[in-house]
Computed example of a mutant assay.
Amino acid sequence: MPKLSIGLILPDVLGTYGDDGNALVLRQRAQMRGIQAHIHPIHLGEPIPDDLDLYTLGGGEDTAQILAAKHLLSDGGLTRAASAGRPIFAICAGFQVLGQSFRAGGRIVDGVGLIDATTVTLDKRAIGEVASRPTGVGLTEELTDTLTGFENHMGATLLSGEARPLGTLIRGVGNTDEHGASEIAGDTQQRYAEGVVQGSVIATYMHGPALARNPQLADLLLAKALGMKLAELEPLEIPAIEQLRKERLG
């Protein structure tokens, strides 16, 4: 029987918005397929194993972000896991922390540098439903279902280098508003971007939790962690999830 280890990274500081639920969704969807799955919470100050199968990070406030970035940089475990190609899924503050830099507490803070992104400040808080069409780049090549979530952030996250958007906006603000995107003149892809895909990292501003609202994305992460194609995973029919998606995408 296959086994799966899921790292829940810093739930004590990056757990403000219920994004711990993403790890629970991954475990449940694995177990429903007969896969032994265990969640390994790793708290602030604890070493981060670099040999888990899959990692999740959630959202948090400014002080939490600063603490998280400092720990992740000094520990290095998550960076080694990314270098080994282990899937990492990050939400909101976790998204910003994995970039090159972000603004928190009135200053610019160094990020972990796993994605080529810099977060500045939006003119107005982005709050409400967000939806996008998957770009299908890199790790997300097999992803086809519309992505849905709830955004609540003040960050304008500008992508560069090898970073590519996870989705193209249908609704909401996503990574940045027009003011933020204007820092990269004429970049239409930047203006309508939601989330990021780079290497083994997938990050997004979607709360919800995101993987409860996007089962195909959850299964993609499971498949990558298991070294499989998405199509090789046994399908799951859960009517309640389909009803939720219809309501949110309606």
Results as ranks from 00 to 15, higher is better:
A240H: 12
D187H: 13
G208E: 04
Q198F: 12
I202V: 13
E234C: 03
G195I: 01
A240D: 13
D187A: 10
E232L: 06
Y205H: 13
R245Q: 10
L220K: 08
K224M: 12
K224W: 12
A203S: 04
M206G: 05
T204Q: 01
P235I: 08
A223E: 05
L236I: 07
L233V: 03
L221W: 13
Q198L: 13
Q190H: 02
Y192C: 03
L217G: 09
A225C: 12
Q189M: 09
Q198A: 14
Q216E: 15
A231D: 15
M206I: 05
E194M: 04
N214S: 13
I238K: 08
Y205Q: 11
A210N: 12
G186Q: 11
E247K: 13
V201W: 04
L217W: 08
A231L: 05
R245H: 08
A223N: 12
A223C: 11
L233F: 06
G208H: 02
I241T: 06
Y192I: 11
E242P: 00
L217R: 05
D219R: 12
L230I: 07
Y205N: 03
K246L: 10
Y205E: 07
A240N: 08
G227D: 02
Q190R: 07
E237I: 06
A240P: 04
E194F: 01
R245A: 12
A212Q: 10
D219Y: 14
A193V: 04
L221H: 15
P235Y: 09
P215Y: 14
I238H: 06
R191M: 07
L233C: 05
P235M: 07
Q190V: 03
A203T: 05
Y205P: 05
R248G: 10
G199P: 11
A240F: 11
S200I: 09
A185L: 14
G199R: 08
D187N: 15
A240V: 13
Q190T: 08
V197G: 05
Y205S: 06
D219V: 09
P239W: 03
G199V: 13
N214I: 07
K229Q: 15
A225S: 15
T188D: 03
G208I: 01
Q243T: 09
G186T: 15
P239Q: 01
Q243V: 02
I241Q: 12
P215S: 15
T188W: 00
D187E: 10
P209S: 09
P239D: 06
I238N: 05
R245D: 03
L222T: 09
A203E: 02
N214Y: 14
A210I: 07
E247Q: 11
Q243F: 01
Q216A: 14
L211P: 11
S200R: 08
P239S: 06
A193N: 03
L221I: 13
Q198N: 11
Q189L: 08
E247C: 05
L211A: 14
L226G: 11
G186V: 13
R248D: 04
P235L: 05
L230G: 12
G227T: 02
R245K: 15
A193Y: 00
A223K: 02
E232N: 10
Q216H: 12
T204L: 01
E232R: 07
A225M: 14
A193F: 01
L236F: 07
E232Q: 14
Y205C: 06
Q190S: 04
E247V: 14
A203H: 06
K229L: 08
E237L: 05
G195M: 02
Q198C: 13
P235H: 10
E194G: 02
K246E: 09
K246N: 13
N214H: 11
L220N: 13
I202M: 01
D187W: 07
I202S: 01
L244C: 08
R213A: 15
